[in-house]
Design a protein around this nucleic acid. Structure first.
Length: 204
DNA sequence: TTAAGGATTGACT
DNA sequence: GTCAATCCTTAAT
């Protein structure tokens, strides 16, 4: 039986929490069944005005309100007209930061994940990429604000990875700005880490 | 009220 | 490798 994270664990800035979430197990139970994903890739986003890439950069809005409230909740948002991405809200209530779950390995509920991700040719593609992960686990826009420590969602400690890599975040504009911070963390050599836009990492 | 753009993916050349 | 799809959120009229 895995050990669940405590609320307090998420009351730290996302840059602290993010690398510690690698290897963690996110489970979502719905009418269709349960799916569990082991996180292999995450990104941190701050909200104190220092991080232009963050949705919380310009302060609290209707969309990002969850990030400013109690930590350990799900911040799900809609993007590109068709995709949902899932974050874990971090920092104490009143402060905003979040960890974007970018990739993972499906370790339970494989059949259900496959049926949700028809276009995936291999199991390693089921949750490789933020919107894919959200789809495979069954996260919808209406799940925004859900508690990740109680209810249909659960976030448990998993085996700590042997190695952790850090590098620039992906998909953000403004090279001279926050895109150059090493706030993306992943498990090296894991096949479920998304390969996108890795144009100027200083390692691998 | 309207317009611009996005923490991406999948299809196609 | 390139590019269209598609609609919600935000900021500007």
């Amino acid at each position: 039986m895995p050990e669940a994270f405590e609320r307090e664990f998420f009351a730290a800035p996302a840059t602290i929490v993010a690398p510690l979430l690698l290897g963690a197990l996110l489970t979502h139970e719905s009418d269709e069944g349960a799916v569990t994903v082991r996180l292999t890739e995450v990104e941190a986003y701050l909200g104190d005005g220092t991080d232009p890439g963050s949705h919380a950069f310009r302060g609290r809005t209707k969309r990002n309100a969850v990030m400013f409230e109690e930590p350990g909740h799900l911040y799900a948002y809609f993007t590109y007209g068709m995709h949902v991405c899932a974050n874990v809200a971090c920092s104490p209530a009143g402060e905003a930061s979040g960890v974007l779950m970018r990739g993972g390995e499906i370790v339970d509920g494989l059949e259900l994940a496959r049926s949700r991700r028809r276009t995936a040719k291999r199991d390693t593609e089921l949750a490789r990429g933020p919107a894919r992960l959200a789809t495979a686990v069954g996260i919808r826009l209406t799940d925004n604000g859900a508690d990740l420590l109680d209810g249909p969602f659960r976030l448990d400690r998993g085996a700590v990875p042997d190695q952790i890599a850090a590098g620039p975040r992906t998909g953000l504009s403004g090279e001279g700005g926050s895109a150059s911070f090493a706030w993306r963390y992943w498990i090296p050599s894991d096949p479920t880490v998304s390969p996108y836009k890795r144009h100027k990492t200083a390692h691998d």
